[in-house]
Computed example of a mutant assay.
Amino acid sequence: MKLGLIGKPGAGKKTLFEALTKSDPDSGHKGDLRIAAIYVPDPRVDVLSAMYSPRKTIYAQIEYCLGRTAGDKDLQLKAVADCDALIQVVRNFPVPGMPDPSPYKDIAAMDEDLMLSDFVVIEKRLERIAADAKRGKKADAQEMALLDQVKQMIENGTPVRTQPEIATAPLLRGFSLLSAKPVLVLINNDEDDTALPAGPPPGGIDLMVVRGKLEHEISRMSDDEAAEFLKEFGIDEPAIHRALRRSYAMLGLISFFTVGEDEVRAWTIKKGALAPEAAGTIHSDMQKGFIRAEVVAYDALMAAGSYAEARKQGTVRLEGKTYEMADGDIVNIRFNV
């Protein structure tokens, strides 16, 4: 999963990128593309690792991409074209020499930029189809219908993501439409401000408040220092962890686990994926030769205390090719190739 950070200059994209990824400041390459992969915190992995004492413990990963933080806006958007979703950072704190923050207006302005970028892509494709038609090449009727729908939505000021069946249409996948991507908005507040901006928030937008400078400070601390700091200020967890979970939910992702003495590992799949697809996430041979999946729910394993006890209690079950995976499933794939 790859998430791209976007936003106006001065919004705090760089600060939040470094807080999310715990990467070092990179002032020497201002404006360059930055990509960092991080492990997704999951207390279930910690518990399973303590239970099995494996040689390796592997968390699910998420990749963050930060485009240009200065200069050409189009280059910033182009840098995130291949991302699965976008995180828009919106300034809600005063900066000397800059206008007063207007977070909700900034959200709307970014949507306009995303739609304008998509409009250019759609227009170029329609022009090419028209040119091909003059040479006798017949257009794909389904593609044309989708392109016309997208163009009409944009002309009406409606982001493509508001129509999921269009946004996820396979025929449109190659266009990397920006307004079709899910968006999580991070309202970047001052250190002592935890409230949403005044006024009604825009509809259809998933947003949450973060305090970028504070999160950046926490990300520089050791685990023990961070825990003490959070306790002192009555903070349950860093907002960055919540942003990770919201990103997962926004993309419709869930986690399942494989466990053993060699390795405890979290795997990421789309909600609704069937058991063979989950097997393919581990290895393509497992999907090709899938026979059965031995499954126990995480909560059932915790209640039993051990895999052997869960089996005695009958909560370990065999599932076939039509089984829809659930978040927290612990699986052992039976296959033959």
Rank of each mutant, 00 (worst) to 15 (best):
residue 162 T to V: 11
residue 238 P to W: 09
residue 320 G to D: 09
residue 183 V to I: 15
residue 51 M to C: 05
residue 194 T to D: 13
residue 237 E to G: 00
residue 91 R to S: 06
residue 144 M to L: 15
residue 170 P to H: 08
residue 250 M to P: 05
residue 269 I to G: 08
residue 238 P to I: 07
residue 193 D to S: 04
residue 183 V to P: 01
residue 82 D to L: 07
residue 142 Q to N: 14
residue 274 L to Q: 14
residue 272 G to A: 09
residue 303 A to Y: 00
residue 160 V to I: 15
residue 328 G to Y: 01
residue 37 A to S: 15
residue 94 P to L: 03
residue 104 Y to V: 06
residue 118 D to F: 02
residue 251 L to N: 11
residue 326 A to L: 15
residue 65 C to R: 12
residue 109 A to F: 09
residue 154 I to C: 04
residue 172 L to C: 11
residue 305 G to V: 04
residue 7 G to R: 05
residue 216 H to L: 13
residue 133 A to V: 08
residue 72 D to P: 00
residue 263 E to L: 05
residue 246 R to I: 13
residue 225 E to M: 00
residue 101 P to A: 07
residue 307 Y to I: 11
residue 334 R to P: 05
residue 192 D to Q: 12
residue 171 L to V: 00
residue 21 T to R: 10
residue 240 I to H: 02
residue 154 I to W: 10
residue 41 P to N: 03
residue 275 A to W: 01
residue 184 L to A: 00
residue 173 R to G: 12
residue 197 P to E: 08
residue 277 E to F: 08
residue 160 V to M: 07
residue 319 E to V: 01
residue 241 H to Q: 11
residue 254 I to F: 03
residue 139 A to I: 02
residue 70 A to I: 13
residue 178 L to M: 13
residue 227 A to D: 11
residue 303 A to K: 12
residue 172 L to F: 08
residue 250 M to E: 11
residue 302 M to C: 07
residue 104 Y to E: 00
residue 62 I to L: 14
residue 78 K to L: 12
residue 46 D to E: 15
residue 26 D to F: 09
residue 180 A to K: 12
